[in-house]
Design a protein around this nucleic acid. Sequence first.
DNA 1: TTGTATATTATGTATGTACATAATAATCTG
DNA 2: CAGATTATTATGTACATACATAATATACAA
Lengths: 233, 233
Amino acid sequence: MSTPSFRNWQSVQDEVLRRINTREWTPGDLIPTEAELAVEFGCARATVNRALREIAKTGILDRKRKAGTRVARNPATKATLNIPIIRQEIEDKGQKYNYSLLNRSIETPPPNITTSMQIPVGSKLLHLIALHTADDRPFAYEDRWINLDAVPSAKNTSFETVSANEWLLMNIPYTGGEISFCATTATEPEAIALDCPFDSALFLTDRLTWNGADAITKLRLVFAPGYQLRTSF
Amino acid sequence: MSTPSFRNWQSVQDEVLRRINTREWTPGDLIPTEAELAVEFGCARATVNRALREIAKTGILDRKRKAGTRVARNPATKATLNIPIIRQEIEDKGQKYNYSLLNRSIETPPPNITTSMQIPVGSKLLHLIALHTADDRPFAYEDRWINLDAVPSAKNTSFETVSANEWLLMNIPYTGGEISFCATTATEPEAIALDCPFDSALFLTDRLTWNGADAITKLRLVFAPGYQLRTSF
DNA sequence: TTGTATATTATGTATGTACATAATAATCTG
DNA sequence: CAGATTATTATGTACATACATAATATACAA
């Protein structure tokens, strides 16, 4: 078999993945060094490095200095989730988006909120409740707390026309956060707002956003029945 | 202010992120070219390139040849989901894992399965039903179809001691797949196996795995009440 | 004015060299 | 032989240079 040329990192990557996929290199195997592969593929070591580095980021390869590169034994499947703005999610499906604010108040939050946001007990937060609709049908019920110490300008924002989600994204930087998903039965206000039976099974996402050490906002989003979150890997 | 030195791509990345976060560069802004930043930071263009390339992959920067690099207007938040093997997920919590096969048969699947797996109507698949437990309490109910054309060796595997998930991962390569999450109410067999009320709200994941153009397996996993899927971004 | 060819430019990538770093292997020493 | 020291090695990164590529701007022609 004459060696085809692998002169760019994409084709090197493809070839390495092919060898893993065809079990030419099986899980646990130590694969040749970058230098060896560079010679075999007729390219620079940097090119091989780029290809292997990218594969390693997916978890398919494990790399260690001096120890070498080996095929991961049980690569935990990784999928990238896109967390879109609700308006975009709805408009992308060709539906009409609408947003309405149901409640806006400054309150002392329940303890589970103060705990997860790591905020002094007794401090007051902005509490928003809103409904997102798609083609005039309920889509998601939003229950949000905003840390006014971290986002003082929220105090002067009505959030009646622009959703907190969009306003925060446009105006407040963040450095990271946590998100969790689970199933829940509708509470009474949720069932009413989402126009569904009281004990419906609903998809729930819980989100906490940070800017450095400051909690920005904590959000509980309950979706109307039938909602699906999907991605590929 | 004397310019500190940014002589590695990580610190260049940090500095760029800092400027974005402090709104020195605001969403929509065109940032300086790689060459300009290289001069400013006192490093090679390749170093700046690496830093910006990595940031662009998170969606925070948009890059286009000739057009330049700009701060994304509404970076869709991206989170990386880890899809672990159930056994690992349970053992990582320090709980005892157990697996039991409830049913194993070769059947003609319902039309929704053939459609999503893109398999000729009427072909027979291996149908497995199993229960995963944590500390002897029901954890997840598994309903799986395996494409025997793509995985002929599954025909001779009992799946009584090793879960299909682990067996497939160890033995059958895959190139990708799709996964979706939603909330559902328990069906009767699910409620019985999971030992929960008939109309409980349950977290459901649906998974389809491909190897090239061949569907390997389709999986419906229903988790016991209280299950949470979490990640950070 | 409109459409087409050409120049320009910023990012994308490949390469050879050099050195840094982490992990292992080999060696020395008590 | 245990424990510390030193050498070795594979990956990780930085850099200068060169060229590729895509998108834009400009010039030109009909």
